[in-house]
Each structure stands twice: as C-alpha cells, then as structure tokens.
Amino acid sequence: MRDWDDAFNNMGHVKGSDALPGFWAARAADYRRGPVRIDSDISYGDSAREVFDLIWPDTPPRGVLVFVHGGFWMRLDKSYWTDLAEGARAHGWAVCIPSYTLTPVARISEITKQIATAIEAVGHRVDGPIRLAGHSAGGHLATRMICCDSLLPPKTSARIEKTLSISGLHDLRPLLRTAMNATLKLTEAEAAAESAALRRPIAGAKVTAWVGGAERPEFLRQSQLLAMIWDGLDADTNLLVEKGHNHFTILDSMTSPNSALCSELAD
C-alpha cells in the first residue's frame, strides 16, 4: 500500500525546507516596509482570521487577483506571502491575499465558504475582472470557486477571467489515509464533495494547472487529474509542468513580472 504521508511530505524531500517559513515571513515583511500601497487587515467575516490585505498597483487597477495561500489548510496566513503580489501588481493588477480560519477549528468546506466571501468582498472594492490563483491547498480553494456548486454569486462568477492552480490539490480523498487527517478531520463525503476534480466546472471556466517538475509524484498527479477531467467537461484547461522547480521554488516566479508564470496569470 502506498505511503500517503510520504506522498504529501514536501518538506521531507526538499533540503533546508525547515527554514523556509522564516524566510518567507522575513521576505514578505521587507516588502511591506517598501513604497507599495497596502491596505491591511480588511475584514470580510466575523472571525479573527477572516481578513485580507489588498496591494495596489501604481495606476488604476485592471482588476483584482486573489491569491490563496497553502499550508494544508492548517498552517500559515496571509503575512507570509505579501511579496508574491509584485509580479501581478507590476502588470497593473490589485492583489488580494486573504487569511482564513485553519483546521481543525474550521472544516475544509467552511474554509471554502470563507474564500468565496473574501472574493465577493474584494469584488466590491475593486472594479473589473477577477483572476484567481492559489498554491497547494490554496489551489484547491481557488478551483473550488469555479465549480458548478460554487458559493459565489453569479455576477461575481461572471467576472472571473481565469484561475491558476499552482501545485494544487484537486482530489482530497487520499488525504483520508494520512496522519494529518487527525487535524483536517475529512470524512469520505466531504473529501469527495470538496474535490474539484470530481465536480463539474462552471460554464466558460478557464484554468491552468501549474506544477513543478521536481515535485512529489502525487502533486504532479493532482494537476494532471484536474486538467484531464475538466478538459473532458469542456473547460478551457491547460497543464504546465515547469522543469526544475519543487513545491516551494515554484512560487518564486510570482515576484517577477517577466516570468512565464506571471505572464500566464497577469497578461
């Protein structure tokens, strides 16, 4: 039987990864001390973690990009990722980075509702199209917004131009067989209901599954699965495997306006 804990263990297979959260936090804090306009801790719900930061471009925004962070729904918050806004911001996009209530305090299905609420809230603040991006568990949350049972109001769904799932999780059922499910508390029914690969995409959905070529095989499978199934359901799908990148370095390109990943997202 496959070792599913190892299959999802990114840090165990990337040398020096234990130091990464501190590095991310410091890099994001440095960015917040810069000249960029950032509206911080905008509330979109009742709980303490239902807040987002909104990073503004230097010119009137073309629209808003919502970036949803990962951490297996049980770690991290928006403060680790502020600098990832720079690539899209340089292309003229406002960038919203929400926090959300973590498991086990909230179920994954409840986090999905929170992200929908955050997108609706920022949509009232920024006119124009909406683009979605998410990394790892955030890729799950981003793609759930464009499923047929999305909790977004139809007017907001109609504004979503494209979605980029970076190393996303789209089939949650294997997580039932991991030790981390003691925290996630997924049931068979919730895992199936929350798996974007098992849902039908909304009409006109445009989604790219972007994954590093040096990632764990399970993360490659997760991206391939979404692209294959949704292509068969008439979504505009694209799968891109970026050679040389692991689960963490895949994000670095978001800081660069000239990167291929940023061009896919912002152009």
Rank of each mutant, 00 (worst) to 15 (best):
F219C: 02
H140N: 15
L169T: 13
V211G: 01
N246A: 03
L169V: 15
H135V: 12
A214Q: 12
E161V: 12
R125G: 05
K162A: 13
R173A: 08
H170C: 00
G232F: 07
H245E: 14
A205N: 02
G244E: 11
G212Y: 12
Q222Y: 01
T143F: 03
T237C: 14
D171L: 09
A191V: 09
R107W: 03
A205H: 00
I166P: 10
G204A: 06
G212F: 08
I115F: 04
G232S: 11
T143L: 09
R159T: 03
A197G: 04
A118W: 11
L169C: 14
Q224Y: 10
A118E: 08
R216V: 03
L240Y: 15
A179R: 14
I146F: 09
A182K: 13
T237K: 05
L175H: 07
R159C: 02
D171W: 01
L240D: 14
G168L: 00
K243V: 12
D231T: 15
I115V: 15
G128P: 00
S136D: 13
R221T: 13
L169D: 05
T112Y: 10
A182Q: 13
A179E: 15
M145I: 11
A189W: 01
I202N: 08
R107D: 07
F248H: 10
L152Q: 07
I130A: 01
K162G: 10
K155T: 13
T112R: 15
W230G: 00
K155W: 10
S150P: 06
K243F: 10
S167D: 00
A192Q: 14
A235T: 06
G138Q: 05
G204E: 04
D234V: 11
M145A: 15
I146E: 10
I229S: 06
I119C: 07
Q222F: 01
G204K: 05
